[in-house]
């Protein structure tokens, strides 16, 4: 192995009470690579994203950053590594304006006070690059449309030049034009060497954009696919469980219970 992957998950497990939501998850994301994370509802995709982001840390297992095991116990830890996340529920503060949300937790200061002018300028510059149709930067986010809010969440994740971007269904509430804007953006980020983990239900998008696809089923890995060579049917079969790519799954579960 020449260069270790930027991010690697080794044997990630997490349980909520008696429910094993993630079991022995393996995953690698390299710099300049888009990995699609696929799976049916309840497969554990969002839970995995939250584990990487430090919001709901894994119970056991190792997260490696450039080949080195790193502890991610809090959102802070992930952020400092350069991991940025767009959550499915966006995790925006509705009462704060666009600028406030973008910089939340890392406000630009000037003599100890908030430097609103500088923050607004950076917000404007970033949003102008990302998308057409700039929202009112000083409007509380709750008054924006869901598409605009999605763009705010995406903009926030890009503000500090992340090295890994976790996107949990980033195009779910976007219209046609905005969706293609976001997909172009992901493409562009890959070219700049950012590693992207993209959760999506849209096989066409995944085929068009991702380099590899990792499928989760019932909290376990259920196959890795090269999206250029794998057929759509193969991936769908892994998602629905028609093919079992991890042996002894049921046996394992009986032990756990």
């Amino acid at each position: 192995m020449a260069t270790p992957p930027l991010l690697a998950l080794r044997g990630i497990c997490k349980r909520f009470g008696v429910v094993q939501v993630l079991a022995d998850i393996e995953l690698e994301v390299r710099a300049g690579e888009v990995v699609a994370l696929m799976g049916d509802n309840g497969a554990g995709k969002s839970t995995l994203v939250k584990a990487i982001a430090g919001v709901a840390p894994a119970d056991t297992g190792v997260i490696e950053w450039e080949g080195r095991a790193v502890p991610i116990r809090r959102p802070h830890d992930a952020r400092d590594l350069g991991i940025a996340t767009v959550y499915q529920d966006l995790a925006l503060c509705g009462n704060l304006d666009v600028v406030g949300n973008l910089f939340l937790g890392r406000e630009t200061r000037r003599l100890g006070f908030l430097d609103e002018v500088e923050m607004e300028r950076r917000t404007r510059d970033l949003l102008e690059r990302l998308s057409t149709g700039l929202p009112d930067l000083r409007a509380p986010v709750v008054s924006l449309s869901s598409g605009q809010r999605q763009m705010v969440a995406i903009a926030r994740s890009l503000l500090w030049d992340p090295r890994i971007l976790l996107l949990d269904e980033p195009t779910a509430s976007l219209g046609f034009e905005q969706t293609s804007e976001v997909l172009d953006l992901v493409d562009h980020l890959r070219d700049r060497g950012v590693g992207v983990l993209l959760i999506s239900h849209n096989l066409a998008d995944v085929k068009a954009l991702a380099d590899r696809a990792a499928v989760l089923r019932l909290g376990r890995n259920n196959g890795f696919f090269n999206v250029n060579t794998a057929s759509q049917e193969q991936i769908v079969a892994a998602i629905t469980g028609a093919t079992e790519n991890v042996p002894r799954r049921m046996a394992h579960r009986e032990v756990d219970w």
């Binding site: 802070h76 995790a91 925006l92 704060l96 937790g105």
Partner: peptide, 28 residues
């Protein structure tokens, strides 16, 4: 008022009221 509206601490107070989970995920 200056503390609440012009300092990072004040921003965190408002953020908590706007969504405690969102604030937590923003590493507050």
């Amino acid at each position: 008022d200056v503390v609440l509206r012009r300092t990072p601490y004040g921003r965190q107070v408002y953020a908590l009221g706007g969504g405690i989970e969102a604030a937590r995920r923003a590493s507050l």
